[in-house]
């Protein structure tokens, strides 16, 4: 089907441009037109199928009529033979031969029409599938074009911090650096928290009168006071 070949070539052309920068709107217009052409073609095939199916039904009806007529006349012939009317029986038999001769081409026609219907149905199914696939691809190209436009707009507004313009590796490095920074911050916070925890414990111990230092002003004063009171008591 040359139409589809043309269509795919058009898609490929526009996609290449989509990958580079912004999709060529002219190429997209041509593609849209070609999809529409393919859709029209499909519509015609479907109409063709309807016609062939109607013809096939008419042939089927004719075949049935002939078969019925043959059956009926065979009955008549037997009846004529039963009555011993050989002359009439022969006339009837000739009629049956006439019907049979008419039936054969009708049956051949019906076989051909049945094949046509099956073939058309298959072609339509395949065409529809390919058309769907092409439409999906075109939609994705258009979506990419929208995305690129949006990214270009962002890049134009915030020049400097543009993900659209940097390479995938640069972007990846930035993400990694951010993750590292985040984990560094988390570790630092964790370390701080631990220190804070120690401080907290010291405060609690002090409040409970437990000190790690051997001597403090108060304890020395207490000792002196105790000495003094001991001396005055003697």
């Amino acid at each position: 089907m040359s139409l589809f070949k043309k269509l795919f070539t058009a898609v490929r052309g526009a996609a290449t441009e989509a990958g580079e920068a912004v999709v060529d709107s002219q190429a997209l217009r041509i593609m849209d037109q070609e999809i529409r052409d393919a859709e029209n073609e499909l519509k015609k095939s479907k109409e063709g199928l309807t016609t062939v199916m109607a013809q096939k039904m008419a042939t089927e009806r004719q075949v049935k009529e002939k078969q019925k007529a043959i059956e009926e006349h065979e009955g008549y012939a037997v009846q004529a033979l039963d009555k011993g009317d050989e002359g009439l029986a022969i006339q009837i038999a000739e009629k049956i031969a006439e019907f049979s001769n008419e039936l054969t081409p009708l049956e051949t026609l019906l076989t051909g029409q049945t094949q046509s219907v099956n073939q058309l149905k298959q072609t339509i199914k395949q065409t529809e599938k390919r058309l769907q696939a092409t439409k999906r691809e075109v939609a994705l190209i258009k979506s990419t074009a929208s995305v690129q436009k949006a990214q270009d707009a962002i890049a134009a507004t915030h020049s400097g911090s543009t993900s659209a313009m940097s390479s995938a590796m640069d972007s990846m490095q930035r993400i990694k650096a951010r993750q590292q920074e985040k984990s560094d911050k988390m570790n630092a916070a964790l370390a701080l928290e631990n220190e804070g925890g120690d401080g907290d414990l010291k405060a609690k111990m002090a409040a409970a009168g437990i000190t790690d230092s051997g001597a403090s002003g108060n304890s020395i004063l207490e000792k002196l006071k105790a000495k003094q009171s001991n001396a005055s008591a003697q």
Partner: peptide, 26 residues
């Protein structure tokens, strides 16, 4: 939503803003 001939949803994921996900529905 990025409006255009084919509307596209741009989804950015926290801490991975460099690689947004673009969603289309047909």
């Amino acid at each position: 939503v990025i409006n255009g001939e084919v509307p596209t949803l741009q989804v950015t994921v926290s801490d991975r803003e460099e690689f947004p996900i673009y969603i289309t529905i047909d």
